[in-house]
């Protein structure tokens, strides 16, 4: 498995997203310009210029027409995927951290960081089919959790919103009323900041990665803890194979603590685990810094990782990978 190294960003990567067809890969980094690549050969297609701060997160519509990006410049922007034209900009009083489009692409959930006096919040915005009708009003705003909300995604049938962040608690909210429905257990849940959250392809379960060196698999409806995967390093990014029962965890020693003695000290590996048996299968090395972002191609035959080192590494699996037995 020889990876394709994609050098298009000048700052650490923050997020990766494939479109539904799996032919495009969108990458976000701290360098203000989200980039789109051919997911097959790693060729760069174009960039989306307009943000004035680190871009933390993005999502792409089911028909691959729209891209939504959230940035530290306190705005969330809608883009035309094809032309790179900015269609709309939602402005907030604080940096936007996470964005996720609902089933049907008519709603988006956006989280904002605590900033100055305002606490962190989850916003739900209406997305219009025609950009000229687009307004910036929030359908719903939820406040409550302490600290940053690092990820928020839609639950089944857009009825719930799942959020996780610095307070190490996973919460499920009613997306109509904004009521808190469920909260993860302090005992069994994460002990430190949850850095990432990724839904399975069909949405039945989701995986959270945390700085407590573990990742946990939860039931999307009941918020029951199903599995725990333990590693040796803080987890920054998680992804699940849509094809096989594999989960992949990325992370590593915090960049500010990286030792100078040995490259292995940081453990900047993407680790593969068996989803059901919770056993480690293998690892993919290569990054010079912690892995910040991971994404699986929807066909399950390739995945990409984005690191603190500014590289996106695109890996197409060898045929051996599909025959792994443990």
């Amino acid at each position: 498995m020889r990876p394709i190294l994609m050098k298009g960003h000048e700052r650490p990567l923050t997020f990766l997203k494939y479109n539904r067809d799996g032919d495009l890969l969108f990458s976000c980094a701290k360098d203000h310009t989200p980039t789109v690549w051919f997911a097959d050969n790693g060729e760069r297609l174009g960039t989306y210029r307009g943000h004035n701060g680190a871009v933390w997160c993005c999502d792409v519509s089911r028909d691959s027409m729209r891209l939504i990006t959230g940035s530290a410049d306190q705005s969330v922007k809608l883009w035309n995927v094809q032309t790179g034209e900015q269609l709309y900009s939602f402005n907030f009083g604080s940096p936007a951290r996470a964005v996720d489009l609902a089933v049907g692409d008519k709603l988006a959930v956006i989280t904002t960081d605590p900033f100055m006096d305002s606490p962190s919040a989850i916003h739900v915005k209406q997305i219009s089919r025609d950009p000229s009708d687009q307004t910036g009003e929030s359908v719903l705003t939820i406040k409550g959790p302490q600290g940053r909300i690092n990820r928020a995604v839609w639950g089944p049938l857009n009825k719930t919103i799942i959020s996780a962040g610095e307070d190490a608690v996973v919460r499920i909210w009613d997306s109509e009323t904004g009521k808190l429905l469920k909260e993860s257990d302090k005992e069994s849940g994460h002990k430190k900041t949850i850095t990432s959250l990724s839904k399975s392809a069909e949405g039945s379960h989701f995986l959270t990665g945390s700085l407590d060196k573990s990742a946990k698999l939860w039931d999307t409806r009941t918020l029951t803890l199903i599995k725990t995967y333990v590693t040796e390093r803080p987890v920054n990014a998680v992804a699940m194979s849509p094809l096989l029962d594999h989960v992949v965890l990325g992370g590593g020693q915090d960049a500010s603590h990286v030792t100078t003695t040995d490259h292995r000290a940081g453990k900047f590996e993407a680790k593969f685990f068996d989803r059901i048996l919770q056993e480690e299968i293998g690892g993919v090395k290569g990054h010079f810094g912690p892995i910040n972002a991971l994404a699986f191609n929807p066909d399950g035959k390739s995945f990409s990782s984005g690191g603190e080192d500014g590289y996106v590494r695109l890996h197409h699996f060898d045929s051996d990978y599909f025959n792994i037995k443990i």
Binding site: E202, G203, G300
Partner: peptide, 16 residues
């Protein structure tokens, strides 16, 4: 209905 009647619901339809 959420998808405006688009029938395709093929999230799980990939197979090796």
């Amino acid at each position: 209905t959420l998808r405006d009647g688009e029938v395709s619901d093929e999230e799980e339809e990939y197979e090796a």
